[in-house]
Design a protein around this nucleic acid. Sequence first.
DNA 1: GAGTTATGTGAGGGCTGCTAACTTTAACAA
DNA 2: TTGTTAAAGTTAGCAGCCCTCACATAACTC
Lengths: 214, 214
Amino acid sequence: MSNEPPATHTAPGVTPKASYHHGDLRAQLIAAVQDLVELHGPDGFSVAEAARRAGVSSAAPYKHFKDRHEILRGVVSEAMDRLRAAMEAGAAAHPRGSFEAVSAVGLAYVNFARAEPGVFRLVFSLTEGHENAPDLLAKGENCFGVVVQAVADRLALSPSNPEVQRRAYLLWSFVHGHSFLTIDMKTKVASAEINDWDYLMTISHAILGAPIKA
Amino acid sequence: MSNEPPATHTAPGVTPKASYHHGDLRAQLIAAVQDLVELHGPDGFSVAEAARRAGVSSAAPYKHFKDRHEILRGVVSEAMDRLRAAMEAGAAAHPRGSFEAVSAVGLAYVNFARAEPGVFRLVFSLTEGHENAPDLLAKGENCFGVVVQAVADRLALSPSNPEVQRRAYLLWSFVHGHSFLTIDMKTKVASAEINDWDYLMTISHAILGAPIKA
DNA sequence: GAGTTATGTGAGGGCTGCTAACTTTAACAA
DNA sequence: TTGTTAAAGTTAGCAGCCCTCACATAACTC
C-alpha cells in the first residue's frame, strides 16, 4: 500500500535486482499492469497475464497484493503521484500568479490523459473497493490542491478562500471534461481541431479574468 | 443492434409475453445488465448473471448477442437514446434561444449522470469493440447536436457555424467534467455544495454571454 | 402437414481469481 | 557456524466466467 520501495531484506549497497528470488516483483507487477491497462483498457487486464509478464507463477502476485483490486490501486496511486508532479512542474514553469501558470497546470492534466489514456481512465473508474483507500482519496485531494494553489496565486487570495475553491473547481471541470472527451473521441467533433493551450488560456480568462457572478 | 422491439414472430394482438419460449429475452437481458452495471459498476457484470436474472440458461444470451461487448453496446445505445431525449426535453421546457434552455440541456446531462452513474460511466468507458459500432458514434453526435442546437439558438447563428461548435464544445466539456466529478467524488471538495443550476447558468453566461476571445 | 428458421438447453474447453499446502531463500541470533 | 523464522516463491486445484458445439423444440411459411 505504501509506495516506498520494498528493499526490506536487501543489504544496503547491493543492487536490489540480484537480491532475492525475483528482485522487486511488486514494482514490476505494477509496471506490467500499467502496460496491460494501456494496451487493453482498464478492464482488459488480468493478474495472470501480469504475472506471466513478470516471469513468475500466477499465484505469486498474491504474496504482494491481496486482491486484483489492490494491484489496480497500486497503479492508480503511482499514476496520481506522476500526475501531481506533472501539474506542479507545469505551474513552476511560469511566473507565479500568471494566467500561464494556471493554464499549464491544466495542460499537464490533458497531456497526461493523452499520453496514458488507459491509466487515466483507470484513475477515475476505480469504483470497486476504493472506499477502503483513504490514501487514494488524499492523493486526489492533493492533485486538486495544485489547481487550487495556482488559482489562489492568480487571484492573490488564500487557497482556503471559498471563491478560490469554487473557481478552481470550475476550471477543473473543464479540464477534466476536455481530457475525457479527447481520449474518448466518442464524437470527433471540433475537439480534434482544438488547440489545448488556446483552449486552456480561454478558459482561464473566462473563469479568472473577471468576476463571474452576473 | 436496432432498437425497435423484436416482435418478429409474435402475432399482432397477442401479448408478447406469452408468445414464445421466453417472450422477448433481448430486452430483458439489456434491462438486467443495466441493473447489474448500476449495482456493481461497469465491469462488475457478467453474462451468466444476467441470464440467471432473466431465467434462462447461460448460453441463451448468445442467440441474441454475439459478445458480452455487444450486450454492453446495446445498453449504451439504449442509454444514449434516453439521454438525448432528456436533453431535448430540457431544452424544450424553456424559451427557444434563452440561457435557460442552454442550461437545461446541461442539467439534463448532469441529472442523468447522477441518476444512473453506472450506466453513465459505461457509456464513456466503452473502448473495447466500439470501433465497429458506427451507430453509437452517430448517437454520440446526436447528443452533442442537442447542445449545438441550443447554443445556435442562443447565438442566433447556424449550428454549422464554427464559433457555435467551439462554444458548444466548451460548454459540453464543462458539463461532462462536472458530471464525472460529481459521481466520482474522488474528492468531496466543494462539489458537494454546488447548486447545479446556478453553476450551469454561470457557465452559460461566461461562455455565451460575451465574446470570449480576449 | 413439411421444411426452415429462430430460440432455447446441456456439456464442455480454456481462462481467470484466489486459496491451500509446500519448498526455497534470506535475514538474524546464539 | 548453525539453527530458527519469516518472506517470497512454487504446484495443484476449486469455482466461476465466456463462449462454442451439438442437439431439441417451438413458431412461421407454404
